[in-house]
Amino acid sequence: MESVYERIASEIYDKSYAIVDDFISEDLRASLLQEQTELLEAGKFRLAAVGKGEKKQIRTEIRNDQVLWLNPDELSRYESIYWGEVEKVRLAINQRCYMGLKSFEGHFARYPKGSFYVRHMDQFQQVIYRQVTVIIYLNDSWSEEDAGMLRMYLPQANGSEEILDISPIGGRLVVFLSGEIPHEVLPTNKERISITGWLKDID
């Protein structure tokens, strides 16, 4: 029987993205969310920037979420468990798609009520090593009225785009090719929490 990791790899190969509900256990989701809350209360989060290196800047008209980068060498118990799950995804994608993925980087991402991130690509000139975007949502509950969907613009063979809106339901994993799918976070009506990261072809 195909594992969930093999399924993700197959869908990445076939259509460039995959969505898996209940990818992590409810206990792990709740523990990661609690950890995020404690780190936020401790003042660890910062406004997210756009660009890289000398071009890095705060542009709240483009994005106004808050992030806390996670250090792979100093992961908590629960972060380590999640990193282990992403490692299985990495291995499966490499086996199916021959992408040469070597490492993972990620951060907690918090979108306060009213925040958003306009259409963009995760892979650009300064971060061409980002190959696969990996997002796990940690929200306790989510309804259509809460908005804040991830909107993906899926390129079609005829040059058009298909729009796919994905609700940030807790435990849901979204994986997609960073250099192929433009996307945005629509304005959210309540706080929205995830761990967002990238599988890279460098160490």
Rank of each mutant, 00 (worst) to 15 (best):
E2D: 07
E2Y: 03
E6P: 01
E6G: 02
I8P: 07
Y13C: 09
S16Y: 14
E26H: 11
D27Y: 11
L28C: 11
Q36V: 00
Q36C: 14
Q36T: 13
L40W: 09
G43R: 05
K52W: 01
E54V: 12
K56E: 13
Q57F: 03
V67Q: 10
L75W: 06
R77Y: 15
I81Y: 05
W83E: 08
E85W: 06
V86H: 03
V89Y: 10
R90M: 12
L91G: 02
A92N: 03
Q95M: 03
Q95K: 15
R96H: 05
K102E: 14
F104I: 04
P112Y: 03
R119D: 04
D122H: 05
Q123F: 05
L138H: 07
W142F: 07
W142K: 08
S143I: 01
S143C: 01
L150W: 09
R151D: 09
M152L: 15
L154F: 09
A157Y: 06
N158K: 09
S160W: 02
S167C: 03
P168V: 12
P168A: 10
G171K: 13
V174H: 12
V174G: 14
V175A: 12
G179Y: 10
I181D: 06
V185K: 08
L186S: 06
P187H: 09
E191K: 08
I193F: 10
G197C: 04
